[in-house]
Design a protein around this nucleic acid. Structure first.
Lengths: 215, 215
DNA sequence: ACAAAACGCAACTACTTGTTGCATTTAGAT
DNA sequence: ATCTAAATGCAACAAGTAGTTGCGTTTTGT
């Protein structure tokens, strides 16, 4: 493992840009490139970052390892690029009219996100700041972006005035999201809609103006 | 990396038992052994399982690597033993008299646990079922044990009858614990007591019989 | 159809991981 | 205190993995 002195994969152009997107009108965003990124994320969702090997990514992407090494000089660079390639397509959803309904919609979306390969791989990178703090920073940034979108949804839902003023919406989000994450990713339990409803019921009843006691 | 055919580290005695605890009255539970386990857990809390190397553990424990290799033939065996060495000293805490007070006590304890090296390392192992399913299983068992203890606390608190019947206590626990975990371990935010109180307020107000609306 | 870039392949070097033999230390029993 | 067996440290080793390089072939844009 020979290390390049201190190669940073920050804002500097990090590899030879594939010419496909240079001219001709960016017909395809490099099909093969996407396959490689996908393979990287999948490997990362299954194993550690530490256990991730460039060779295994190459094998999964059906590509020779030299191809990878030439374009991304290090494992960190490859993962970096793969992370950056994640696009979170978030379309604002229509309000259901009630706080409970909106929270439930939110919960379902969170569950879907949590289950995705992107979220799983993002998590792996997120909780390693030791060997690659730079990568962890990037993963944090991406996650924050998602979080911000979810927060906006929640804010819109609560703006109707059904929520006690002073309520910490970020906290509510993390209560809900934390539960989903723990059950899905860590405990590997099945999270079904009934559970989401129960959780939402507790939270709604906990932050709502009206003392809704029954569920 | 030569692999032993299929060496399982299950219930079989996995290494030469140190003689210290054999006779003489178990004066010390092998001081050095504890140091090694500690080093293992610390390394594991900082890095991946995949990135964990026996050599780094040896270095941290100020021990020659051959010592480790001789007693634990593989990395998995070492981690296994280190995990098993974890003892969670849980003393039942006195009730504060109110549901809110008890939940807050519970939250504080969860925070403390979550921050511990043991929990951090346990988590790492927990979310790798790919390369070492056996290890993940063990980590799951240990975590379940902890969870059960916490659940009993919560049950005791709710038994006073301040909680709506039919309330999913496990869910409440995961809402609280999930939030703490996400903020502490993943987002690396500071979790202070005020936040815990706010969270508990929401939950208490969400599960309590009495419609407590103000906080 | 042509040229440049990208790719696959194979051989190679450098490093990491795990193993072994032997001298030295340590700890329990007499 | 002394003896002995287990445990450890050390160094040299074997084997595997991670990157590198040169070259011939394929792909791709013009």
């Amino acid at each position: 493992m020979r290390r390049v002195a201190n190669w940073t994969y920050g804002s500097v152009a990090m590899a030879t840009t594939p010419r496909k997107q240079s001219s001709h009108g960016s017909k395809r965003p490099a099909r093969r490139e996407r396959a490689i990124y996908r393979a990287t994320l999948e490997e990362l969702a299954e194993a550690d970052y530490g256990a991730l090997s460039v060779e295994s990514v190459a094998a999964r992407a059906r590509v020779n390892k030299t191809t990878l090494y030439r374009r991304w000089p290090t494992k960190a660079a490859l993962v970096h690029a793969a992370l950056e390639s994640i696009v979170d397509a978030f379309e604002l959803e229509a309000s259901t009219g009630s706080l409970r309904g909106d929270l439930l919609t939110l919960a379902r979306r969170m569950l879907k996100i949590t289950r995705s390969v992107e979220a799983q791989s993002l998590l792996r990178v997120r909780l390693l700041d030791e060997p690659e703090p730079e990568l962890a920073r990037i993963a944090a940034k991406l996650q924050a972006r998602r979080q911000a979108q979810l927060t906006r949804l929640l804010e819109a839902a609560s703006a109707r005035g059904e929520v006690r003023r002073g309520t910490d919406l970020g906290l509510v989000l993390d209560l809900l999201g934390g539960m989903i994450h723990v059950r899905t990713t860590i405990k590997k339990m099945r999270v079904d809609d009934a559970l989401l409803q129960r959780a939402v019921d507790i939270l709604v009843s906990g932050i709502s103006l009206h003392p809704t006691r029954a569920r």
